[in-house]
Structure formats: C-alpha cells, structure tokens
Design a protein around this nucleic acid. Structure first.
Length: 222
DNA sequence: GACCAGGCACATC
DNA sequence: GATGTGCATGGT
C-alpha cells in the first residue's frame, strides 16, 4: 500500500468518524482571512470572541480595519491573545491587499496559486500555515494546510518521521489527494477535529489516546 | 496553578 | 540550519 493510499484511507476513516466538517467557520472570505491570523497558536474560541468584538464595534470590514489605529485594533482583538503582534500582522496583511489588490479580496482570485502564495509569504507575520489557510479556505485555491496536529498525528502513527518538514507534508497530501480542493478542505478540518479531541501536545506518546486511530491501524498496513 | 491552544519572526550559535 | 525565545488570553 502506498503512502497516498494510506492518506486516502485515513480521510475516509475520519470522515466516517466525524462527518462533514463544513469548514472554515466564517461567513465571508474576509472573515476567514482575519480568523487565519487571529488563530495563530490560539484556541478558536478566543478568536471568536475577538471577531465578535470587531463586529460589535461595527468595524468588521477591510476598509474599516485599514483605516483603524493599530492600538484600537489591538484592544478589540485582545481575547485572541498576542494581541499587539497580531494587530500588526493583520495590518500588514490588509496593507498588502490594498497595495497589491486595491483592497479588493475578490481580485486576489485572479492571481495564480503559486505566485499568490509567494506574495502572502512575503508579508511579515504570514507564515506557511496562515498563507495556506487563506489560500484554501478564503480563496478556494488548491493548497493543503499543514498544521501542528497534522505533524503530531502523522508522526505518532509512523506515517512521517521526525525530520519531515512542512513542504514535504504538504506535497504528500497534495499528491495523494490529486488536486481536489474539496478533499483538502475536508481532510484538514477532520485532522484538526481529531487533534482537538484526542491528540494533545504532550501525552505519553507511546499509545496514542486517539480513539479512531486503532481502527486506522487495523485497516492500514503501516 | 500548570498546561495547552488551528504560528511566526527574530536572535544566537 | 537548527535551536531557543517572546508574544498573551482563556479554558481545562
């Protein structure tokens, strides 16, 4: 069985276990973009509070945030943690969208995936996971999002080894899932769901607490 | 009270 | 290039 087969099999198992994830939580491309920055190393519940603050303040649109004082933005997003640095990062990203795309998120859709990815990665505060989350979930681009849960789960189940880096894992998923945006979207969401529920950062790693993984081990020949 | 959460940039070796 | 550190709130 190839690694690609394993990836696809894991997808099916997680889908059976957790069902359709309907990701990303967010009602607009803009909301996904903001959430992608705010969720950096942060619980999503805290991000929701920060976004709610922005909505209640009546400033939840790109134009309002573009004009806003950074200190006020920081105060509004405070519940998301790291609020000073995230205010800067959000500003950097919005400034980029204004400078490069005239503040029009829809305009970004016309750009090629790879060049847009490079542009996003040049923005200070936008790393690979944040860029890829924006590309996939806000802009419907065919990019698989790799996060801490992805590494943790794959490593603990002997699908990757410790020195495997972000781009290697991304390639692994993208080649396994054959450019299917719908699958990229769903599987990343399922992995996060799995990680949140079962795969904490520092368990006794021999014997993953993961509930569904023994079933994977039975079905997949690791 | 300790530990963790859907990262990232920067300093230092 | 790898390794360590600061950033910070809120839930368990």
């Amino acid at each position: 069985m190839t690694t690609a087969d394993k990836i696809r099999q894991i997808y099916q198992l997680l889908l059976d276990a957790f069902g359709d994830q309907k990701w990303w939580p967010g009602e607009s491309r803009f909301e996904v973009i903001v959430g992608a920055v705010l969720t950096q190393n942060t619980n999503w519940k805290n991000v929701e509070k920060a976004i709610e603050n922005l909505k209640k303040a009546g400033v939840f649109d790109i134009g309002a945030l573009h004009k806003m004082q950074i200190s006020y933005l920081a105060e509004l997003i405070r519940p998301a943690g790291y609020y000073n640095i995230k205010a800067k990062r959000l500003k950097n990203l919005i400034d980029f969208i204004y400078q490069r795309y005239d503040g029009d998120i829809e305009d970004m859709l016309n750009q090629g995936t790879e060049s847009l990815r490079q542009e996003l990665l040049e923005v200070n505060g936008i790393g690979r996971e944040t860029a890829d989350s924006i590309l996939l979930y806000a802009l419907d681009k065919p990019v698989f999002v790799v996060d801490a849960y992805t590494f943790r789960i794959l490593y603990r189940h002997n699908i990757i080894d410790a020195d495997c880096d972000y781009e290697m894992v991304r390639e692994l998923f993208q080649s396994s899932l054959d450019g299917d945006i719908r699958l990229y979207n769903q599987l990343h969401a399922l992995i996060v769901q799995t990680g949140k529920n079962f795969c904490k950062a520092k368990p006794a790693c021999n014997g993953c607490p993961l509930d569904c993984m023994p079933k994977i081990s039975e079905l997949v020949d690791f």
